[in-house]
Amino acid sequence: MNSIATTEAQALSLAGAPNADISPLQAVIFDWAGTLVDFGSLAPTQIFVEAFATFGITITLAQARGPMGLSKWDHIHQLLQEESIASQWQTAFGYAPGHDDVDAIYARFMPMQIAKVAEFSDPIAGAPELLVWLRANGLKVGSCSGYPREVLNQLLPQAAAAGVQPDYVVAGDELDAGGRPGPYMALANVLALAVSDVRACVKVDDTVPGISEGLNAGMWTVGLSLSGNEVGYSVQEYAQAAPAEVEARVAAAEAKLKQAGAHHVVRSVADLPVVLAQIAADMRSGKTPV
């Protein structure tokens, strides 16, 4: 049986961690599901499966996870481009899926997601302590999400009550320019937080589109393997998984996030302070994210 004791110990150590020299960093911008809350990024995944099922279309959890990080409309659109899913739609309805069909699935998905998301608002171990540590070290805390604002409105009060409350939040449907992998939500944080240099920001995310978002914004990027979408364990599944299986999944997630361009990959936000100190040291020596 596996244990989450190490992660919990890291989380507790953050609470008493001393101030560190992480200048000239100014801000850290986080994703939500799989990053700050919802270990395994479970909330959106099952709802995608259930929403498609109401149209008679069967998708697997692995397929549902594939485009994770995109805005939810774009996520559904991407799923409908997948050959096996598009073929099912063609057989069921007699035509290839189009934008109106994305709208229809999205309309079915939204109330289901709104009803369920608060059930997946538990902070990932170390997240509340990390935000305290970041602020104690003078950093601003931003965030963005592929969730629409209606969904975030259900999630945010629950997360705040548990100690996860960034200085700024932008949702995947709030910007006319669009969402990930574009830089727009990350840059909205730069403006809202009055950060003077995008190169002094770190984007933290568990998905490839989220890493691309940070890179496209000119920021440092840190990928999260164990806590996020790419590994996909619930806390209970992780505790019961064989160590060899855990390590294999983590290694695959790390490789995928590094291939996407992440400057660093760690298991969860509990590991972030050491990486931030390294990034800050690199910046002081003249290195930049690009």
Rank of each mutant, 00 (worst) to 15 (best):
N2M: 09
T7S: 03
T7Q: 03
E8A: 04
S13F: 13
A17G: 05
P18S: 14
S23A: 14
P24W: 06
Q26W: 03
D31M: 05
T35W: 02
L36T: 14
V37R: 09
G40D: 05
S41W: 00
A43I: 07
V49H: 08
I57M: 15
L61T: 09
Q63I: 05
R65A: 15
L70G: 14
K72S: 15
W73D: 12
H75G: 11
I76C: 04
L79D: 06
E83R: 08
E83S: 12
S84I: 00
A86Q: 10
Q90K: 13
Q90M: 10
A92M: 14
F93G: 12
G98Y: 04
V102Q: 00
V102S: 05
V102M: 06
D103R: 15
A104Y: 06
R108F: 00
P111H: 14
I114A: 12
K116S: 10
S121E: 11
I124E: 00
G126V: 14
G126L: 07
L131W: 13
A136T: 09
K140N: 05
K140H: 10
V141K: 15
V141C: 15
V141D: 09
G142A: 05
G146V: 03
Y147G: 13
V151G: 04
V151T: 11
Q154T: 10
A160W: 07
G163K: 04
G163V: 03
D176E: 14
P181R: 04
P183C: 13
A186K: 11
A186R: 13
L187G: 11
L187Y: 04
A192F: 03
A192M: 05
D197W: 01
C201K: 04
C201P: 06
K203H: 06
V204N: 08
I211L: 09
E213M: 10
G214Q: 04
G214R: 02
A217S: 09
A217C: 06
G223Y: 07
L224H: 02
E230V: 01
G232H: 08
S234V: 00
Q236T: 11
V246N: 00
E247M: 08
R249G: 02
V250F: 00
A251C: 10
A260T: 01
G261L: 07
R267C: 09
L276R: 01
G286H: 08
V290I: 01
